[in-house]
Simulated scan of single mutants.
Amino acid sequence: MKNFIIYSELGQILQFGSCPDSMLAMQTSTGRKVLQCEANPLTQWVSDGVLVDRPVFHVSTSTEKIVADGTSEVVIAGLPAGTDVRVLGPVSSSITADGSDIVMTFLSPGDYTIRAVLFPFQDYEVIIHAT
C-alpha cells in the first residue's frame, strides 16, 4: 500500500489516502497531481513538487477582550492584502484585507471568532470576548 496526497496546481492539498502500489498512478486527474507521502493539509502544502510547511501569518492583535460599546477597538495588524477575514459570532461579517490594519468595534456582547485565510498561509484564528 502507498500513502498519497492529491494536490491542486497551486499546491493545496485536496485529499489524502492510501492505495495498492499498482493504483497510485490512477489517482491523478486534470488539474490535480499526486505525491506519494503522508501530510497534514492544515500545516503543509506542495511547492515545486515538494511537501513543505505552510508559512504562518505574522499577525498581532491588540486585545482579546473588549467592551461591546461600538467605540472600543480591536486592531489586527500584519495581514497581507487579499486575506479573507471572517468574523463569526453574535453578528457575523467578512472582508478582504487590503494590507492595512483592520480595526473592529462591537455593539453586541459575545464571543467572536476571527479567522484569516490566504493560501498558502496557515489559517490564523483568534477569539475576541466582547462584554
Rank of each mutant, 00 (worst) to 15 (best):
L118E: 00
P20T: 01
L79P: 04
P80L: 05
G82T: 08
S108W: 02
C19T: 15
F16M: 12
Y112P: 04
S8D: 10
F121P: 04
V59D: 02
N40E: 06
T96M: 12
G82W: 05
R32C: 11
M23F: 14
S62H: 02
F4H: 03
G70S: 08
G49Q: 01
T28W: 02
N3M: 06
L42T: 14
K65F: 13
A68D: 06
V67E: 13
G70N: 07
G70V: 06
Q44R: 04
P120F: 02
I5C: 07
T28L: 07
D98H: 03
N40Q: 13
D53H: 13
V50W: 06
P55Y: 03
D98A: 11
V67W: 03
P55M: 09
I102M: 08
S60T: 15
I5L: 09
I5W: 08
F106A: 07
A97H: 03
H129N: 12
R115S: 11
F4M: 04
V56L: 15
A130N: 00
Q44F: 01
S60D: 08
M1H: 11
T30Y: 14
S92K: 04
A81K: 14
R86A: 13
Q27K: 15
V74L: 13
S47E: 15
P90C: 11
C19A: 11
L42S: 15
G17M: 10
T105M: 03
I128N: 00
H129P: 04
V87P: 00
I128K: 07
E9G: 08
A39V: 09
